[in-house]
């Protein structure tokens, strides 16, 4: 067996051991209050998204283009039996990086008026709630995503989904 094969078997054994040990481990002491944030990327920019602002995350499988759509509107899609307009986050925020086709749809919680298309969902990080609130306030003031947070993977902006939806609604209103 090669060195790579030995490493993979050891990894599997370790994972199995940790999984089994998780059930036998006593509950961990109460960590400091932290809020789970979703790590996404769009237009070459990485963002944190608060899970509490999302109704769900879905794969972007079927999008029907709309003729004469406004800027940033990719089309219509169906989420749990409801038709939602899908917007490209990179286009809405005028991000400088290359705009690839979105693979994931972030559905706004609450009103569920629209979906935001992002290129990648990288995972979930837990950030202390105080830092998240401060960043959310800063993002609210900036009208989008300018509140900076940092986890083990590095710093990135906190995306204020409600502010983005306000921008979309503002763009939908006739001039």
């Amino acid at each position: 067996m090669t060195a790579g094969g030995v490493g993979a078997a050891a990894r599997v054994a370790e994972m199995r051991r940790e999984f089994d040990a998780a059930f036998a481990r006593p509950p961990a002491p109460e960590p400091p209050p932290a809020e789970p944030l979703l790590r996404v990327s769009a237009g070459g920019t990485r963002f944190f998204v608060r899970l509490r602002e999302l109704a769900c995350v879905l794969p972007c499988t079927l999008v029907v283009p709309v003729p004469g759509a406004r800027r940033g509107l990719l089309g219509l899609t169906a989420v749990r039996g409801q038709v939602l307009p899908l917007y490209a986050l990179a286009t809405i925020l005028d991000l400088p990086g290359p705009a690839a086709a979105p693979r994931w749809i972030l559905v706004e919680a609450g009103r569920a008026g629209a979906g935001l298309g992002v290129e990648a969902v990288e995972g979930v990080s837990r950030i202390p709630e105080t830092a998240v609130r401060e960043a959310a306030a800063a993002a609210r003031r900036a009208g989008g995503g300018s509140g900076m947070l940092q986890d083990s993977a590095g710093p990135r902006d906190l995306l204020d989904v409600a502010a983005v939806m306000d921008v979309i609604r503002k763009n939908q209103q006739p001039a």
């Binding site: 789970p36 979703l38 899970l51 509490r52 999302l54 109704a55 769900c56 995350v57 879905l58 794969p59 994931w104 919680a109 969902v121 995972g123 979930v124």
Partner: peptide, 16 residues
């Protein structure tokens, strides 16, 4: 990846 997305949605549902 799909399991991860399901877990994320479960986290969202749990937070809700």
């Amino acid at each position: 990846e799909q399991t991860n997305i399901l877990a994320i949605n479960a986290t969202i549902e749990a937070a809700g």
